[in-house]
């Protein structure tokens, strides 16, 4: 964070700017992570079911 600050001068309100971007970062990464984890979870569920021999007629 210190490097970031010295690289470009964000002026007197640097704290607000950094806090805003960190907040955005947390929410956006949270969204991406939860989307990815959920996708993985459902794929695993289907794979488990498939391994048990439970599958739909249409997708062999």
């Amino acid at each position: 964070m210190m490097d970031f600050n010295s690289a470009i001068d964000l002026g007197p309100h640097a704290n607000f700017i950094i806090a805003a971007y960190i907040g955005v970062l947390i929410v956006v990464f949270g969204l991406i992570l939860s989307t990815m984890l959920n996708a993985k979870k459902q794929k695993n569920r289907l794979a488990d079911l498939d391994a048990k021999g439970i599958r739909r007629r249409s997708d062999k």
């Binding site: 996708a39 459902q42 794929k43 289907l46 079911l49 739909r56």
Partner: peptide, 8 residues
């Protein structure tokens, strides 16, 4: 996929 898994 979730709905598919639920149905199965």
């Amino acid at each position: 996929l979730r709905r598919k898994a639920d149905a199965l």
